[in-house]
Design a protein around this nucleic acid. Sequence first.
DNA 1: CCGTATCCTACAAGATACTG
DNA 2: CAGTATCTTGTAGGATACGG
Lengths: 122, 122
Amino acid sequence: MIPRHPHRTEDCRAVSDILQRVGDKWTVLVVGKLGDGAMRFNELRHAVGGISQKMLTTTLRGLERDGFVSRTVFATIPPRVDYELTDLGRELLVPVGALGEWARLNQRRVAEARMKFDTAVE
Amino acid sequence: MIPRHPHRTEDCRAVSDILQRVGDKWTVLVVGKLGDGAMRFNELRHAVGGISQKMLTTTLRGLERDGFVSRTVFATIPPRVDYELTDLGRELLVPVGALGEWARLNQRRVAEARMKFDTAVE
DNA sequence: CCGTATCCTACAAGATACTG
DNA sequence: CAGTATCTTGTAGGATACGG
């Protein structure tokens, strides 16, 4: 357990806020890929897989807005745009990585709980 | 940083999955309140504040299905239903709490990044 | 290549009313 | 008290087409 979890509503709202940011469909996938280093738009698109152009743009804009990702445009032809994690983004990767590790280790327990619940209800 | 973050797509999907579960509007608030110990339905409703009856039911059912919360019905009149974190739920609280702590510590940096981005675009 | 614009569908979430 | 049922609205996310 966390040694002194305050669970004050205002704090929980802040948590909820960033969890919703990070909890959308694509953000963690994108941030995870960018953990390797800078990537171009389409490079990222193919690395993630299954993401639409629109959603990749939306996700990257959101991450950029929150200061997790930097966007660098090279005015060449054809144009080239690099995306890279900022320091803040790399720091975010720590707790998110921990949660990810937990998810990886416990996905079986959750899956079993779901099966049990679903068959019990049916 | 996490010592060997594999960022493999399949793992990231698992992360994304539980992040979406935990990243909806009310889950962390509810789990946070339940961190104190067992609570009744309306007790929880008032403790969280602003949540509709329907969403509390939905959230609790989801948490119960995933094995994070247990539901105990007392066949009294009026009826009484207690909700409590399971072991799995309490374990989940650890990485979520860590992320929450990060969110609390860095909310200013994120807010500043947003302001900067928004005024730059405007 | 890297987007924006537009349209569409599914679902999250709230409001309200009713029941064992 | 602790829900379920129904209706409505907002938005997330996808498909497609076009533009710099």
